[in-house]
Computed example of a mutant assay.
Amino acid sequence: MTVVAPLAADPVSCEEFGYGLGRPDGILVLRYRSAARMAFGENRQDFLHQLYWSPDGVLSARHDRGATLIGPGEAFWVQRAVTHEVHAADRQTVYRICLREVPAALDGLQVGAARIDVEAAELVLAIADREYDERGASEARRRIMAGLDPRPHPADDRQPGGSGVAVTVATALANDPGDPTRLDEWAERLHVSVKTLQRDFAREFGMSYSQWRTSLRLRVSLTLLQTRPVGEVARRIGYASPSAFISAFVREYGCTPGRAASMIHAGDDAAASLLLSRLHR
């Protein structure tokens, strides 16, 4: 088993929950927690298929096709022997699900973002519990696999011809959405002009730097709002004040962050799906 290395001195805790190991229909769930940022193996290749999911934060995944951001309602899927690395922020919980079989809907996907439905996510949480009755594990695994399907990710919709500097910035922001670095400062760090970086964002993502950063921050906020107050979410994702965050959120979703959190907490799946669909449009 590959060891998870923290990006700081804080220890990473890892709990294992295995059912039917050694059989084709087995499943192994590893739950990681850390007070520091986590990196799941640079250039790692696994013998089992991997699914990474975090219920309380955004994941940044890197692979041979570029960088991918994984947020609410999504997981990062990697078939065995595909080189990849995954990064998580501080104080984040990450589930790594190991499978011998490929879910039917992901058969043609070697690596990339996959939608994970509400039932599948709840079952991942359920089986990662010491009190779980293992007699239900086989059915839980089947329903988890059935609850996955490919989903194009905005960071994967890159246009050909980009220089790569925009992806470098996007990957850094994925690890820290609250990073206050300005566009001109990024350009200086990357030894390119501001115009070059602006053009590269338009080519790579079809939007400006500020639009992409706002989209990322709001995407992260949908997850954080499930467990944290509006003021803390605003600070963590880089807004100078809660009012600035609320204004941006209302412009995007047509409701306040508090209202959105209430809908999600109340289990209003239709409303939550509408919020997410607007972010993926």
Rank of each mutant, 00 (worst) to 15 (best):
A234P: 11
F205N: 00
S221N: 13
A234S: 13
S243H: 01
T196A: 11
S241D: 09
W212V: 05
T227W: 12
Y209G: 06
S221R: 01
A244F: 01
K195C: 00
K195M: 02
R235F: 04
M207K: 02
Q226T: 15
S215T: 06
D200H: 01
R217Q: 15
Q226R: 15
F201K: 01
T196N: 10
L218Q: 11
Q211N: 01
K195E: 10
Y209V: 13
L225V: 09
S241H: 08
T223I: 03
L218Y: 12
L197Y: 06
V230C: 12
Q198L: 12
S221P: 00
T223H: 04
T196K: 08
D200C: 08
G206A: 08
S215E: 15
R217P: 06
Q198Y: 12
T223Y: 02
A202F: 13
R219L: 04
S241F: 11
E204S: 13
T214H: 09
L225H: 02
E204W: 01
R213G: 05
A244K: 09
A244I: 07
S241K: 06
R219F: 02
T223E: 13
T223K: 03
S221E: 07
V194F: 00
T196L: 08
P242N: 11
I237S: 03
R235E: 07
F201P: 00
